[in-house]
């Protein structure tokens, strides 16, 4: 592996990580505008993070080392996953580290520690959040895998680089199976990131909350890491979906012009995705908690239908 491509790989991961809070800001500002409010601006998440990094940590009296260790695991596993999803440049040496399945597993590792941290203090809120998070993510997993399956059968690979190149190199054909996979993947992304209609990221004390319940006891830099990881995860999923379904514009070679083009294309597509998300979040109401399994099983059924239509309509003709 050459030094330049390694540098580019790290650089694009840094871009993704640094842009993640702004992406969260874009969603909240767009939502505010849609609700006739002014909003705090797209940089507000960054300001929050900087403020939190400067604050002293207050730990609960019975917090164990798991509680202090978890934010670092969550943060690093999420970044590791993010660094395998290329926003700008397709051919990167480190994308061999983890294929799509390993990427999902890295996120699962982050979630495992997040849930453990929720259980550590021993309050009902933490346990509740952990229980629900693990339950719903378990139901989301088969749907996620199914939609990855639909894509990887065409490309004969689960390597992101190969999958993106495959999409770029095949002539554009109407493939209904991809539409199914996309819908399923979007539904899973909404659930995994705790957005409306599955979870409401803006509530802090509500009996139906999931993500916030687990990090209720965190403060200072620990909280900042947890929040930042959640923002990175949102950007990661958006980039993953863009890469898999709409990769056009991403740079194939490591030239400066190509990368600059890739950056512009990525930003445009990402912001489009985020605006769509804020529209959905404004338009829809949160589901009742026990309708979430129905939502996720629908995602699974759609992905499976995608697979079946792929076999029926796209192979053999």
């Amino acid at each position: 592996m050459s030094g330049t491509s390694l540098f580019l790989q790290i650089a694009q991961a840094v871009v993704l990580v640094l842009f993640a809070p702004i992406a969260a800001g874009v969603v909240s500002t767009a939502k505010a505008r849609l609700q006739n409010r002014r909003g705090a601006g797209v940089l507000q998440p960054w300001r929050n993070l900087i403020k939190l990094f400067g604050k002293q940590v207050v730990l609960a009296e019975n917090a164990s080392w798991i509680f202090r260790f978890a934010p670092y695991v969550v943060f690093t596993a999420t970044i590791m996953a993010a660094s395998c999803v290329p926003p700008l440049l397709v051919h990167t040496p480190l994308s061999l580290t983890a294929d799509v399945i390993a990427l999902v597993a890295l996120l699962a590792l982050a979630r495992f520690f997040l849930a453990l941290a929720g259980m550590d203090i021993g309050t009902a809120f933490g346990g509740m959040g952990a229980s629900r998070e693990m339950t719903f993510s378990a139901l989301a997993e088969p749907a996620m895998l199914m939609s990855v399956f639909v894509l990887s059968i065409g490309a004969q690979s689960t390597n992101l680089t190969t999958m993106i190149s495959h999409t770029l190199n095949t002539p554009i054909v109407l493939q209904p199976s991809l539409a199914f996979a996309l819908v399923a993947m979007l539904m899973v992304a909404v659930a995994e990131n705790g957005r409306i209609p599955v979870d409401n990221p803006t509530t802090h004390l509500e009996l139906t909350m999931i993500h916030e319940a687990m990090i209720l006891e965190y403060s200072g830099r620990h909280l900042a890491l947890m929040e930042w990881a959640a923002m990175i995860k949102l950007t990661l999923f958006a980039t993953l979906i863009i890469d898999l379904f709409l990769p056009w514009g991403i740079s194939i070679d490591a030239s400066l012009a190509g990368v600059a083009m890739g950056l512009v294309a990525w930003l445009l597509k990402l912001i489009g995705f985020l605006l769509g998300l804020s529209l959905v979040e404004t338009y829809l109401a949160k589901l009742r908690l026990f309708e979430v399994p129905e939502f996720l099983s629908t995602a699974f059924v759609i992905a499976f239908l995608g697979l079946l239509t792929h076999y029926m309509l796209e192979i053999g003709t």
Binding site: S177, L305, T317
Partner: peptide
């Protein structure tokens, strides 16, 4: 690709038809 555009469109509509049938069941 050997498939003509019409063929593709009809296949796509068939897939949509299946989706709508499931949607009818899921409401």
């Amino acid at each position: 690709m050997s498939m003509s555009l019409v063929q593709q469109l009809v296949d796509g509509l068939a897939a949509l038809m299946l989706l709508v049938s499931f949607a009818l069941l899921a409401q």
